[in-house]
Computed example of a mutant assay.
Amino acid sequence: MGLVVTVAAAAVEPLPEFGASALLSEWSLAPVPLVATVWGTGLYVLGVLALHRRGDRWPVGRSIAWGVGMLAFYLATSSGLAAYDTVLLSVHMVQHMVLSMIVPLSLALGAPVTLALRTLPRRPRGWLLAVLHSRVAKVLGFPPLAFGLYVVSPWALYFTGWYDASLSSTYVHEMMHVHLVAVGALFFWPIVGVDPLPGRVSHPFRVLLTVMTLPFHAFLGVTIMGQTALLGGDHYPSLHDGPMGAWLPDPRADQELAGGILWGAGDLVGLVFFVVLFVQWVRASTKEAEREDRRLDREEARARAAQE
């Protein structure tokens, strides 16, 4: 049978009309997302418990952010979003935005690298530090490169044969999900700046990079909305000949909705991220001002002591 299985054949299996109930009822126990979610959540919890056992504190907000990221990843790959992502382009686009923006941003805010450095034994911690200081990590963490990959990848996905291939091959389909999360992580992780990763830049440059991504999402969304050719070729129209044809929307209308989702969701998440960066910038500036005040106080105290 081989490792490559066509997704199109599975997509024509009868599914109920898409809606809130379908999101909850059409769950699947996909092994890879389930294992990744369980291990990712479990190791993080073990790290937090290890800190608490030795009397150290770990910010609750970081734990919540990590939990949100892992939950979003599992929902996108195992809930009704995954069941319908090859049936409705609009559903796929929601999944795309969750995997490429919400999941990487939430996981980055969870600061797992910092947690690992504080809890790992000496030898594994040394291995992790060696990876962080490696040339590969520095290249992948170079902000302009990460920005270019993050901006170009969606265009390459939808305007090459990549997306068509993802509809006909389970392997390509799953690798697309991995790619979305990986590229999102390369972009968001250094910019969030919580973990000690290569490529961290000043707060003004972080805000600039975030603002620069907004027009690209909007332009891509508008382009998809206005395109006459259907993404996926004959894949979505062919589904109307099967048992789901009674409720499936017009492929053209669904593509316009998908483009609108990409446009609106990209801007919304981008603005939320902009607010996060702005808050980080204010906090960093406040801490720097406090450090400077303490330094000036110490110098003034030394000057007074010298005069006496």
Rank of each mutant, 00 (worst) to 15 (best):
R54N: 05
S28M: 06
L186M: 14
A11S: 15
Y74M: 06
M225Q: 14
V45L: 14
G233L: 08
L107S: 04
F278E: 06
P190Y: 00
V172D: 07
S285A: 15
E174M: 10
M1T: 12
L296T: 06
L88A: 05
H179M: 12
P237Q: 10
Q280A: 10
V139W: 12
H235A: 10
S63G: 14
W281A: 12
P243G: 11
P104C: 03
G80A: 01
Q255R: 04
A83I: 02
S134D: 07
A258T: 05
A301D: 11
K287F: 02
T228P: 00
V113K: 00
L239V: 03
D297E: 15
S153T: 14
P59V: 08
D250I: 01
R122L: 09
A182P: 01
E174W: 13
R298M: 13
R123Y: 02
E174Q: 15
L257P: 05
T86I: 02
D267S: 08
G245C: 07
P204K: 12
S90M: 05
V207Y: 00
E300N: 02
F205V: 13
P215F: 10
P198H: 09
L88C: 00
E13L: 13
M101E: 14
T86P: 03
L214C: 04
P190F: 01
R125V: 04
S100L: 09
H203G: 06
V60R: 13
L214E: 08
L145A: 04
V194N: 11
Q227Y: 07
V45I: 15
D267Y: 00
P16Y: 01
D195H: 11
P204R: 14
V181P: 02
V275N: 02
E292W: 00
V272R: 04
G193K: 10
W58N: 03
G193E: 11
H92G: 04
R122H: 09
S90E: 00
A165H: 08
K287D: 13
